[in-house]
Deep mutational scan, measured.
Amino acid sequence: QAPETKIVDKSRVACDGGEGALGHPRVWLQIPEDTGWVECPYCDCKYVLKGSKADAL
């Protein structure tokens, strides 16, 4: 199944896999201003900063 994409309001987000005990260790991710998105290294969930150029795609 394809990784999930989430639109977020802040450039710093936490990801834990979203499945409680079945998820992964919580990691904090920083969305770079130049790209407007970041992917979780564990679950490949893509976080897109709302209003960024990546959000316009």
Results as ranks from 00 to 15, higher is better:
A2D: 09
A2W: 12
A2R: 13
A2Y: 13
A2F: 13
P3Q: 13
P3S: 12
P3T: 11
P3R: 14
P3M: 13
P3I: 10
E4Y: 14
E4T: 15
T5Y: 15
T5K: 07
K6V: 15
K6C: 07
I7G: 01
I7Q: 02
I7N: 01
I7R: 07
V8W: 00
V8E: 02
V8I: 07
D9L: 11
K10G: 08
K10D: 11
K10W: 08
K10E: 12
S11C: 10
S11F: 06
S11K: 09
S11Q: 08
S11L: 13
S11H: 07
S11I: 10
R12V: 13
R12L: 14
R12K: 07
V13N: 03
A14C: 13
A14I: 08
A14R: 04
A14V: 07
A14Y: 14
C15Q: 00
C15M: 00
C15P: 00
D16V: 11
D16S: 10
D16F: 10
G17F: 04
G17E: 03
G18L: 07
G18D: 04
G18K: 10
G18Q: 08
G18M: 14
G18C: 15
E19G: 15
E19I: 10
E19R: 11
E19N: 10
E19P: 14
G20H: 05
G20N: 03
A21R: 09
A21K: 09
L22E: 05
L22Y: 10
L22P: 07
L22D: 08
L22W: 08
L22N: 09
L22H: 09
G23Y: 06
G23V: 08
G23H: 08
G23Q: 12
H24K: 02
H24Y: 05
H24P: 03
P25Q: 08
P25H: 06
P25R: 07
R26I: 09
R26N: 06
R26C: 10
V27C: 11
V27Q: 02
W28N: 06
W28C: 12
W28L: 08
W28S: 06
W28D: 06
W28T: 06
L29F: 02
L29Q: 02
L29K: 02
L29S: 02
L29I: 05
Q30H: 10
Q30W: 12
I31S: 01
I31N: 02
I31L: 03
I31V: 01
I31T: 01
I31W: 04
I31A: 02
P32W: 05
P32Q: 04
P32C: 11
E33R: 08
E33T: 10
E33Q: 10
E33C: 11
E33P: 11
D34I: 03
D34Y: 06
D34A: 07
D34G: 05
T35R: 07
T35H: 06
T35D: 05
T35E: 07
G36Y: 04
G36W: 02
G36P: 02
G36L: 01
G36E: 04
W37Q: 03
W37A: 04
W37F: 13
V38N: 03
V38T: 06
V38H: 02
V38I: 11
V38Y: 02
V38A: 04
E39Y: 15
E39C: 04
E39S: 11
E39H: 09
C40T: 09
C40V: 11
C40D: 10
C40Q: 11
C40M: 11
C40A: 09
P41N: 03
P41A: 04
Y42S: 09
Y42D: 04
Y42R: 12
Y42P: 06
Y42F: 11
Y42W: 09
C43Q: 00
C43F: 01
D44Y: 15
D44T: 14
D44A: 15
D44G: 15
D44W: 14
C45Y: 15
C45T: 15
C45N: 15
C45D: 00
K46Y: 05
K46A: 00
Y47T: 09
Y47A: 08
Y47R: 04
Y47M: 07
Y47N: 13
V48C: 14
V48H: 07
V48G: 02
V48E: 13
V48L: 08
V48Y: 08
V48S: 00
L49N: 13
L49P: 15
L49A: 12
L49I: 11
K50F: 01
K50G: 11
K50E: 14
G51V: 04
G51P: 03
G51L: 00
G51D: 10
S52T: 05
S52M: 01
S52E: 09
S52K: 01
S52V: 08
S52A: 05
S52C: 14
K53S: 07
K53C: 14
A54W: 00
A54Q: 06
A54E: 08
A54I: 07
D55Y: 00
D55R: 00
A56Q: 12
A56W: 14
A56F: 13
A56L: 13
A56S: 10
L57R: 11
L57N: 12
